[in-house]
């Protein structure tokens, strides 16, 4: 088990080195930041001075090593556009994205598992069929369209919820939260639904399929033959066996909720890292783009690691520690 974790962490480090390389390559191949930073009226001396200041005059390998060394310490250099440390900008923006992702992730998980179980158990019921049909809409409509539709109905027509921004936030010093104010919570509703709807329908359909599969297994039949209650059969015996594939997908989806918050943040002008990234692309603000890329890959790797460890918690067959008898 410990050996397994060490192996997984080593793999994770390798993955991060590779993404680090890709992120760093952007500096050399995506546009020339010096052109953007200096205006029309510049001399060759200005260009050279800035190049030296940014370390762009050094060999590729040296630049990469320096980049890695700095990145490990959380230092991604100065934003070309704002002239401030990228790490400061990211840590300002990160709470907004993480809160949005957490709310929509929880919503997707709770709603997806609940509805998935419901539609599996009441497979032939009217309610289950209505939900299944509606879920097709959730899977097939693109995120930005859902966002715009929600804005149109709830912000423009009904005027219940704000159409953009994060509302009033409370500054806790190291973290800004929208959870503590009414306007903050109201501002969270539409983006969270927009971001989570697709994941929710995906999880729901997955849970339903897995659950139907599990309910056909012999041990469910045997549980019935032992006279256990339906509730115990559905939730104790069937649900747990459904969870392993669900956790895999959910873990990957959680990563993409954070990564693909870009679209939702753009639609709702949500001041998170996604919007920051979009703006950075427009201005070829490479340090910000590189830092964003690194941050997302760290999150993906971390989530995958957690997911792998969760398997051990759920499925005893994976906990091979020499104690077992049979095969």
């Amino acid at each position: 088990m410990l050996a397994y974790i060490i192996r997984r962490v080593a793999q994770s480090v390798l993955v991060l080195l590779i993404t680090g390389f890709v992120a760093f390559s952007m500096f050399s191949y995506v546009g020339d930041p010096v052109e953007n930073m200096l205006g029309q009226e510049r001399t060759q001396a200005d260009v050279d001075r800035l190049r030296e200041q940014l370390g762009l005059d050094q060999p590729f390998v040296v630049q990469y090593a320096k980049f890695l060394g700095q990145a490990v310490q959380g230092n991604f250099g100065l934003s070309y556009r704002q002239g401030r440390p990228v790490s400061d900008i990211l840590s300002e923006r990160l709470p907004a994205t993480l809160e949005l992702a957490a709310v929509s992730g929880l919503m997707a998980l709770a709603g997806g598992i609940g509805l998935g179980i419901f539609t599996a158990i009441r497979r032939r019921g009217v309610g289950a069929n209505v939900i299944m049909t509606l879920s097709l809409v959730g899977v097939s409509l693109p995120t930005f369209l859902i966002g715009i539709l929600l804005i149109y109905v709830f912000a423009v027509q009904l005027g219940w919820l704000p159409s953009f921004g994060r509302g009033e936030v409370t500054d806790l010093g190291w973290w800004t939260t929208g959870f503590l104010t009414v306007s903050g919570l109201k501002a969270l509703v539409l983006p969270a639904i927009t971001l989570g709807l697709y994941q929710m329908t995906l999880i729901m359909r997955l849970v339903r399929t897995e659950m139907l599969e599990v309910l056909r297994m012999d041990y469910i039949r045997f549980a019935r033959a032992r006279g256990l209650r339906e509730r115990a059969i559905n939730f104790r015996h069937a649900l747990k066996n459904t969870l392993v594939p669900v956790i895999t997908i959910t873990g990957l989806q959680l990563g993409s909720i954070i990564a693909f918050a870009i679209i939702t943040e753009t639609v709702f002008q949500w001041p998170g890292v996604g919007l920051l990234f979009i703006n950075a692309i427009q201005f070829v603000d490479i340090p910000v783009m590189a830092a964003y890329l690194m941050m997302i890959s760290v999150m993906f790797v971390a989530i995958n690691l957690v997911v792998d460890l969760l398997y051990f918690a759920i499925d005893p067959r994976l906990r091979v520690d020499g104690r077992s008898g049979g095969h």
């Binding site: 041990y219 039949r221 045997f222 006279g227 339906e230 015996h237 747990k240 499925d315």
Partner: peptide
């Protein structure tokens, strides 16, 4: 019927490898 099953009549299935829930002791 559920109250009778297990309590007054039990059943044994063909395949012991699949009759037991793998995730419960």
């Amino acid at each position: 019927l559920r109250r009778l099953r297990g309590r007054r009549m039990g059943m044994i299935f063909q395949d012991p490898l699949t009759s037991l829930n793998p995730l419960l002791t």
